[in-house]
Design a protein around this nucleic acid. Structure first.
Lengths: 247, 247
DNA sequence: CGCCAACTTGATGGCTGTCAAGTCAGGTGG
DNA sequence: CCACCTGACTTGACAGCCATCAAGTTGGCG
C-alpha cells in the first residue's frame, strides 16, 4: 500500500522536541533531573506529533511501544466492553502521560482520543526503561507517576462508588480547576473540552443528569455555565457540596 | 515507652523468607527471573511477617518504605474520605502486591487490613529500585505489575460506572473464581473472606442489595450460598448476567 | 445459654435513568 | 446573507433500581 499525496497529508506530522526547552518539564517526566540527565532524556524523545481533534492517538488492542507525554491539548481515554458498553476512564491534559495501561499486556487497553488539536511526545518505552536503569532520579520519578495514576484511579472509584450526582460533578469541576491552575490558567474560568455525554460517562451518569446538575449549580450561584464555557463562582461552595454527605 | 511482655507478644512475628522456595513465585515479583537473579531478590526480601485477621498491615498516612507481597492470606484495602465516607478499593490474595499506591507521595494512601490470618514479605522499596536498575527482567516485570494495577482499576471504574447491581456481583464472583483458579484452588467453591458490607463497599452497593442479589442468583440456580460459603453452579450463566446489557 | 455481628427479607421512598420535546450554536450551501 | 441542518444541550414527566428503614433469622463464641 503506497501513500497517495492525500494520505500523506492526512498522516500525523513529525516535529523535533526537547524536554530541556519544554515549559512543562516541571509537570512531566523530566521533573527533578539535572541538566545533563535531561539532555539524555531528550535524545530518547525525538518524535513529536500533532493529533487533530477527534483523532485517535492509539486504540485498544494496538501493540504498545511507547508512552506519550502531552505537550499541548486535551485527551480522553475510554474503554469498550464486549457487550458494547463503554466508559471514559480519564481526561488528560498538558504535561500528563498517556499509555501507561499498555505496559501490562504490551497492548493498549484503552482508546486515546484528542478532544482538541494536540501535540504529544513519543517516549519509546524500552528506551525509557533502559535510561531509567541508568538515571535513578528518572526511575524514581517514573514510578511515582505510575503510582499517582493508581491513586487517582482510587479517587475515581471512590467518586463512583460513594458519591451522588451533584457531589460527583462538584468533584469533577474542582479537579479540573486545580489542574488548570497548576498549568498557569485561570482556576475560575475555562472551556470544557468534552461533551456532557463524555462527562457523564466518566462520572457514571447520564448526560441529562450532568446537564441538570450544571443548571442546579447555576441556580445556586456556584458557577456560571454557557454551553462549554464555565466560570466557577464559589469554590468553597462546591467543596461543601462535594463532601456534604447528604445524611 | 518500653514493651511489656504482653506488647511483645502482640507484635508481629518475623520469619525468614526465600522467593526461590516460594510456590507463588510464578505469580509474584520473581516471575521470569533466572536462578541467580532470584537469589539476589531473596537477599533483599529478608523479612516476612504474620498479620492476624483484623489487623492493619499499614494505614493511610503512614510513611511508605516498602511494598508487600502476600505469601498467604487475604487482604482488603480501603480509602477514607474526610467526610467519613469510605470505600474498599480492592481485595488482594496470595502472590499479589500491596502498597504500590504509597510510592507516589511516599506515604500510604489507603489502609490494608488482613481479612484472615496472613503472611506477607516486606520488600524495601528503595532496594527494589536499586535491584531493578541492575536486573532488567525485574524492572520490566515490576512495571508490568504496576500497569496491571492501573488496568484493573479501569475495570472497576467500568463496573461502578456502567453496571447494575447484579451485573456487578456476577463480575465480582467470576473475578474471584478466576483468581482462586490461578492459585490452584477450586474455581467453583470457596469461602468469602469479606462481609456483605465489604463486598457492597467495593461494588458501590449497600449490603442489603448484595444480599438480595445473592439470593436471586441462588433462586435462579446460578450459585449456592450459605453465609460465606459459595458454590458457583453456572459460570456461563453468570457471564451472561455480567454482560447482559438490560436494554 | 445468651449475646452479638452478620445476614436475610420486606416495605417504602428518592435519586437518577429513560423517553420525549424543544432550544441553542455552529457550519454548510444556496 | 440567510435558511437549513445537525449535534449538543436543556428541561419536563415518569418509572425503575437501589437505598433506606425495619424486623426477624442465623451462626459463632464466650
Amino acid at each position: 500500500m503506497s501513500l497517495s499525496p492525500v494520505a500523506k497529508e492526512l498522516s500525523i506530522p513529525v516535529i523535533k522536541t526537547a524536554c530541556s526547552n519544554c515549559n512543562l518539564r516541571e509537570l512531566c517526566l523530566p521533573f527533578g533531573l539535572s541538566e545533563e540527565e535531561m539532555a539524555r532524556l531528550d535524545e530518547l524523545i525525538n518524535v513529536r506529533k500533532r493529533v487533530k481533534r477527534g483523532e485517535h492517538l492509539y486504540r485498544a488492542g494496538q501493540p504498545f511501544e511507547s508512552i506519550f507525554a502531552i505537550r499541548s491539548g486535551f485527551f480522553k481515554t475510554d474503554v469498550l466492553l464486549e457487550d458494547g458498553r463503554d466508559q471514559v476512564t480519564g481526561f488528560q491534559m498538558a504535561g500528563e502521560l498517556l499509555g501507561l495501561d499498555g505496559i501490562s499486556t504490551e497492548h493498549h487497553s484503552c482508546n486515546a482520543v484528542a478532544l482538541e488539536d494536540s501535540e504529544v511526545c513519543y517516549i519509546p518505552f524500552s528506551r525509557l526503561e533502559q535510561l531509567s536503569r541508568e538515571i535513578q532520579a528518572l526511575q524514581h520519578h517514573f514510578h511515582k507517576v505510575m503510582s499517582r495514576e493508581i491513586v487517582r484511579d482510587h479517587g475515581v472509584m471512590m467518586l463512583l462508588g460513594t458519591m451522588r450526582a451533584e457531589e460527583r460533578l462538584a468533584a469533577f469541576l474542582l479537579n479540573l480547576s486545580q489542574r488548570f491552575t497548576a498549568r498557569g490558567f485561570s482556576h475560575s474560568e475555562f472551556n470544557l473540552r468534552m461533551t456532557r455525554e463524555e462527562i457523564g460517562s466518566y462520572l457514571g451518569l447520564k448526560l441529562e443528569t450532568v446537564s441538570r446538575a450544571f443548571s442546579r449549580f447555576q441556580e445556586e450561584g456556584l458557577i456560571a455555565v454557557q454551553q462549554k464555557h464555565i466560570r466557577i463562582l464559589d469554590i468553597p461552595g462546591l467543596k461543601q457540596i462535594m463532601s456534604h454527605h447528604s445524611h
